[in-house]
């Protein structure tokens, strides 16, 4: 798996709360059986009208590897396609004041770093990006720090296990397969 260390990039600002996974990737695009190509469908119904013609949206004219979004990002459906779409579209991190639990796990399993900051700090980033859209954010995973010029520096939480996985490119499945003996032993006494 890909690794994450330092992410330094311009940001795409979507200052909307409660962005659900149906917005990130509408359900009608989930019929394919592969993981590829979801980036084109990212925020599709914001970017295109009902006839498929491009339309102005909050995303227009923005680019970067970091998405900055309002509170409770990724709520709703468990579809991992949301994390695949963001990653496929070039995003490596999402900054918000909170993440829905399933989305956060899906992101961590796909080399997409969820960075949780305080509501005040998020408001500061939003202001800074509105004033200077080209502001580069710097995320330092080893130091667990996010730096935003003109706003300051803040730390973010991630458990030691997941941090190591992301930095070294390990996935949970490697761990579980290596722990098969413990699982077999557990099964000996587990009923049902």
């Amino acid at each position: 798996m890909e690794k994450i260390n330092i992410i330094q990039s311009k940001a795409v600002l979507v200052p909307v709360d409660n962005i659900d996974t149906d917005q990130i990737i509408p359900a009608r695009f989930l019929k394919t059986v592969s993981r590829a190509g979801f980036g084109e469908k990212l925020f599709y119904d914001w970017r295109f009208d009902s006839d498929g013609n491009p339309q102005e949206s909050v995303l227009t004219g923005q680019s970067g590897e970091i998405l900055v979004a309002g509170n409770n990002f990724g709520c709703g459906s468990s579809r991992e396609h949301a994390a695949w779409a963001l990653h496929d579209a070039g995003f490596r991190a999402v900054v918000s004041s909170s993440f829905a639990d399933i989305f956060r796990n899906n992101a961590l399993n796909n080399c997409l770093l969820p960075v949780r900051v305080s509501e005040d700090f998020l408001a500061g980033i939003c202001e800074a990006l509105k004033k200077s859209p080209d502001t580069e954010l710097a995320i330092d995973l080893p130091a667990q720090k996010l730096t935003v010029p003109g706003v300051g520096e803040t730390s973010f939480e991630i458990n030691a296990y997941k941090k190591e996985c992301l930095m070294k490119g390990y996935s949970d499945i490697d761990y579980l397969l290596a722990d098969k003996d413990a699982i077999l032993k557990y099964e000996e006494t587990h009923c049902l």
């Binding site: 949970d172 579980l176 397969l177 699982i183 099964e187």
Partner: peptide
């Protein structure tokens, strides 16, 4: 009972286990 992503579906297939932080 809880919802999971597809990477986690794969983990359950492979090991009948998941790695989860206790909520």
């Amino acid at each position: 009972a809880f919802g999971i992503g597809t990477s986690e579906v794969e983990m359950v297939f492979a090991s009948q286990c998941l790695m989860q932080n206790k909520p």
